[in-house]
Simulated assay, not measured.
Amino acid sequence: MSLEASTLWTHAPDTEQLRRVLQRMLESDDLALLTWNSHPIGSQHPNPVTGGVYRFRGMAGLPGCTASWSVILKVSVRDPERDHPSHYNYWKREALIYQSGLLGRLPDRIRAPRCYGVEERPDGSIWLWLEDMEHLRQADWSLTSMEAAAFIAGRFNGAYLCGLPLPEPSFLRYSWMGSWVSVCEAYACGLAEQDDAWTAAAQLPSGWQAALSSIRSRYRESMGDKGHLLEALERLPRVFVHQDLWPPNLYFPEEGGHTDALHIIDWQFAGISGIGEELGRFYGLYLSKAASHGLQPPKDRLLEQYLKGLRKAGWNGDERLVRFGLNASAGLRIVMVLPKLLNAIAGLEGGGFRCLDKAEKLRHTALELLNCLEEASQLLHELWPGEAGGQS
């Protein structure tokens, strides 16, 4: 469900409402709203609970001067399927986080946009008025940028292992990965377990058939540990996480500024998770981009930087815990990627193979995720012997 621009214009803020937002933003009660305009920004396929993101610009009159301004309006819409705090995509979570004031108490060098207002609307939606990060430098997909983000993520997570209290609100204490896996499996309708889903391999080159047979076998074996992996993630040292670190949500200081600070937007998935999970989701998102550009998955390099960040924060615990969090949370993405791969194969037509390129990229991603799952299972046996699948 999404809120079309025309709907926003029907319920657009009146000038007095916008003036109040600007009073908070510009810290002046003596303010006149001179001009303003707005336009939608962001993805054409937003989060289902995001009814739109809009940039408002204009001029304001202040005592003795005028000032230009810009502010972001993010609309959150109620969704019956995502209306409980235990859901990884609980529709009210970001609004509640901003209302709690938590994002004003983040560790050093981590910043969220300032919030200038949280408004519950008559139609049941929530409007978030947020600081515009347009003046900052958005992260890109380069390895340099990704390594910098991994280091800062380590410092961010590590702060909660070294004295910074974990946030208390109940809407942050849920199993993100457990909820996400459950939702993905429901949407996939057990496709990867259905024999018929694999029959399309017959029309592929022989090398592909062998590869898919291996993927199928490894997937079935790895999924035997799924429940144990999810349980073990809940045993890891707990940290506050953003859980959606990828370039569209990450901003570095202005060009020429330090890269050891990070501004992060979109806190919809934030919560309490295990050490390394933040990096696992980060790496899982990066994998699809790496596959699209024929890049070598840089897991070890990102892990090295994340660990450096943890050490910088003062954490000197068992590195295997971090590796487990990374590999388990990244590897479990297979429940989403493998159905996409099977659907791409099913879409191949005759000798045209119009979906073959997409399938090839998904195959590379699936193989790397299986590598992660297998490493996570090995670490599971090392860290918690006797509790993993196949143990007596």
Rank of each mutant, 00 (worst) to 15 (best):
F353T: 01
G325K: 11
M146P: 01
H135P: 01
L73R: 13
N47W: 08
I272N: 00
G64W: 07
L26V: 10
L367G: 06
V75F: 03
E81F: 09
E94G: 00
R218Y: 06
H84D: 14
L31S: 09
M146Q: 15
L236M: 11
G274V: 08
P46F: 10
T259L: 06
S145A: 04
M223N: 10
E16I: 12
L130T: 08
K92V: 05
C372K: 07
Y54F: 15
L3E: 05
A328F: 09
M336D: 13
L379S: 06
P167M: 11
A32R: 12
Y306C: 05
P80T: 09
T35G: 03
P165H: 01
F156Y: 14
L212P: 06
K308G: 07
S145Y: 04
Q138M: 14
V77C: 01
M177E: 06
Y174R: 15
H39T: 08
M59D: 05
I265P: 03
A32Y: 01
A32V: 12
R24D: 14
S222W: 04
A359F: 09
F353D: 01
I334R: 01
A148P: 06
G309D: 00
G347F: 02
E193V: 04
A153V: 09
A346D: 13
W384V: 10
E368D: 15
S392P: 13
L164I: 10
S377L: 03
L130V: 09
R20N: 12
A188R: 09
C355T: 14
R20M: 07
G101S: 09
A197S: 15
L341Q: 04
W180N: 00
L338I: 04
T66H: 12
S2E: 11
D29A: 13
P247S: 02
E375N: 09
C115L: 07
P247N: 01
H258V: 10
P13E: 06
S6G: 01
Q44H: 14
C355S: 14
M25Y: 03
A139R: 04
G390L: 06
L204A: 08
L373M: 12
F156D: 00
H84Q: 11
N316Q: 15
K358T: 15
E131V: 10
T10S: 10
G257M: 05
G163Q: 00
L356P: 08
N316I: 04
I265A: 09
K74I: 07
Q203H: 07
F269R: 15
G309Y: 12
V239T: 13
N343H: 11
I264G: 00
